[in-house]
């Protein structure tokens, strides 16, 4: 891949153009409201991690107890485990969704079919996730459809136990649940790629693979990044699949926070969340530094102007 994949050309922009269609009040106004709704509450919660809770009451005395117990109880491990599973799943979904998004946007010519597929991807959001997941247990369980089918066919003698209540089961159950959020942004960005580009690429003698690598991929990066965020974020908060399919052996972040809050242990929940945000920020930083030469994240979402 000798040719730089993205590296947006240095943008020339005149003062006058920058002002086109711009309301000067929007960004400051948004930042003020957002600070009130998001930043301030979060800062307060971080401050809470340095207090203690005794018998369901917050003791407003500075203390590091919440932080210390995070490590003595092994609670911080859930942050690492959650991140590991979330990243694996995001990679799997990207692998499934990128080719599919491309096909859906460019390969699928029938508008009704396209609409139907997008509908199929939307419907799961309307349905209660617990009831969707609990059904898997009847399929994967030791007396479930797969095991009894395999035993009936004589492939196996005893039921495969790890089909359910294992990390495998959790990953398996997540495939469907977190697919749509990866597809949507990728599909959207693919739809926006002008067919002329692809035609021109072919006219210049590029094979489909070359067009993919040199034309489609660079143009699709904002959509792919959005897809990764859209998928990774809900995955970090996943609790239905780990609870129902992991059999409690896959203890993830959401559960741990929930358990702490049940005893009104705001400090513990706050400390744990701070650890998560720190880990995510660290990952993001590494990603930006690693790809700095190839890709300018800060300007990824800047309007094209050449």
């Amino acid at each position: 891949m000798a040719i730089s994949t993205a590296a947006a050309p240095r943008r020339y922009r005149s003062l006058q153009l920058g002002r086109l269609g711009r309301l000067p009040i929007v960004i400051p106004g948004f930042l003020v409201v957002w600070s009130l709704m998001v930043v301030l509450p979060l800062l307060v919660v971080v401050a809470f991690s340095f207090f203690q809770v005794k018998y369901y009451k917050v003791v407003y005395q500075p203390s590091l107890d919440a932080w210390i117990s995070l490590f003595t109880s092994g609670r911080w491990l859930v942050a690492v485990r959650t991140l590991r599973i979330a990243l694996t799943m995001t990679a799997i979904e990207l692998f499934l969704a990128f080719p599919f998004g491309l096909w859906l946007a460019k390969g699928c010519r029938s508008v009704p079919l396209k609409a139907f597929i997008i509908t199929l991807l939307t419907i799961p959001f309307f349905l209660d996730p617990s009831s969707r997941t609990i059904v898997w247990r009847a399929i994967l369980g030791s007396g479930g459809l797969i095991n009894s089918g395999l035993m009936h066919l004589g492939v196996i003698n005893a039921p495969i136990e790890w089909l359910l209540y294992s990390e495998f089961a959790v990953h398996f159950g997540m495939i469907g649940s977190y697919f749509p959020t990866m597809v949507f942004p990728i599909f959207m960005i693919m739809s926006l790629i002008d067919d002329e580009y692809l035609q021109a690429s072919a006219d210049l003698g590029a094979s489909p693979g070359q067009t993919l690598v040199h034309v489609i991929m660079p143009l699709a990066i904002p959509g792919v990044m959005a897809g990764i965020i859209f998928t990774l974020v809900p995955l970090m908060a996943a609790f239905v699949e780990p609870q129902m399919l992991g059999g409690g052996f896959v203890n993830l972040l959401g559960d741990s926070v929930d358990s702490a809050l049940r005893e009104l242990k705001y400090p513990t929940a706050a400390a744990l969340s701070t650890v998560v945000v720190a880990i995510l920020a660290f990952c993001l930083l590494v990603l930006i530094l690693m790809t700095r030469k190839r890709f300018d994240f800060a300007n990824m979402f800047t309007a094209t102007h050449r």
């Binding site: 809770v53 005794k54 369901y56 109880s73 092994g74 859930v78 049940r262 005893e263």
Partner: peptide
């Protein structure tokens, strides 16, 4: 329902889960 040592018990329980 509201043990005096709820906080410590919950913390220990995390070891079992993890």
């Amino acid at each position: 329902t509201t043990p005096v040592h709820a906080s410590e018990m919950e913390e220990e329980w995390q070891r079992f889960l993890n």
